[in-house]
């Protein structure tokens, strides 16, 4: 199993395609960082525009932590597409190249084969997120410094103290890993049903885009199905950035407003991963390799 996983990782990281996602993320992040470095004040004014009727927010709103939050908001919608590029290719790509049949005639059980491939896709996903963290969090911290975070929610604003933020990012990236592995698992599952990688990649992207749109739109009939869409739960990392307050409306350091929601969403995502991977194993074990 370990050998197989090593081989799968070796294959992933020897392919030029693998690095597209890393390059894309690097480009997106540096562009946003540059924009905020140049015009950050404008953006801060724009964000706090509604508050400025009655309040004045002073201080370094555009700091590294805030920039990272913006980047995560933007990118965690797009990163799934980059993950689909690799995950949905894991099996279909090999079928297309013709290497799948050679792999299957090797003395490895199909379950092992599927698990090794899935773990490899997951490791790729995690590495992509680590790269994202290095650029979006650490580089932003370096460029913009750190300070309190002032975030706008739908109905209120939250200010989180500088010293109370880093662990939240650790949690948020951990959660993002879970969310992105869910995407990888979906792509991976769909990857079995075609002998070219375009189909599963497009299918995975479509599912994500479609679900995300449903998750975003506040139409009552959609609201009924929202809790059942995994994309709704993929954004729960934001729960890390809401704080409990005491009776005097002071934030309590180290708290999360809604930990139940976070746990619930995590469990739903884990359930999705288990479902997709077991379904993959089930289908693949029965599959006749005709490619």
């Amino acid at each position: 199993m370990w050998t197989l996983l090593q081989i799968e990782l070796y294959k992933i990281f020897r392919r030029p395609r693998t690095y597209i996602a890393f390059v894309a993320i690097t480009a997106l992040i540096t562009i946003v960082q540059l924009g905020l470095k140049v015009d950050g004040k404008e953006y801060a004014a724009f964000v706090t525009a509604d508050l400025s009727n009655s309040l004045q927010v002073d201080g370094k709103i555009i700091n590294g932590y805030f920039v990272c939050y913006i980047l995560l908001q933007l990118l965690l919608v797009h990163v799934p597409l980059l993950i689909a590029l690799i995950a949905a290719d894991m099996i279909s790509g090999e079928a297309n190249m013709g290497t799948l049949r050679l792999m299957i005639t090797k003395p490895i059980s199909r379950t092992e084969f599927i698990l090794a491939k899935f773990f490899a896709a997951s490791i790729y996903t995690i590495l992509l997120l680590i790269w994202l963290a290095i650029l979006a969090l650490f580089l932003s911290m370096l460029i913009f410094g750190t300070d309190d975070m002032f975030l706008m929610k739908n109905n209120y604003a939250v200010q989180i103290e500088n010293a109370d933020i880093f662990w939240r990012y650790a949690g948020a990236f951990g959660f993002a890993c879970l969310a992105m592995i869910t995407v990888a698992a979906l792509g991976f599952f769909l990857s079995q049903f075609a002998e070219n990688s375009i189909g599963p990649i497009v299918a995975t992207m479509s599912v994500i885009i479609f679900f995300t749109i449903l998750s975003t739109m506040s139409i009552p009939i959609f609201n009924l199905i929202k809790p059942y869409l995994f994309t709704t739960h993929m954004v729960a990392w934001k729960e890390f950035f809401d704080v409990k307050v005491n009776a005097d409306n002071e934030t309590i350091k180290g708290t999360i407003q809604n930990p139940g929601k976070l746990i619930n969403s995590s469990l739903i995502l884990v359930a999705h991963i288990i479902l997709f991977v077991s379904a993959s194993i089930y289908v693949f074990k029965k599959k006749d390799v005709l490619s």
């Binding site: 294959k11 020897r14 392919r15 030029p16 190249m97 013709g98 290497t99 049949r101 050679l102 005639t105 090797k106 003395p107 490895i108 059980s109």
Partner: peptide, 21 residues
């Protein structure tokens, strides 16, 4: 299966391998 396949070598139709390696 695995025991047997260890002792088989095969070329199935086109000899497809990883072209980027």
């Amino acid at each position: 299966r695995n025991e047997i396949l260890k002792n088989i070598g095969a070329v199935i139709e086109k000899p497809d391998v990883y072209k980027y390696l």
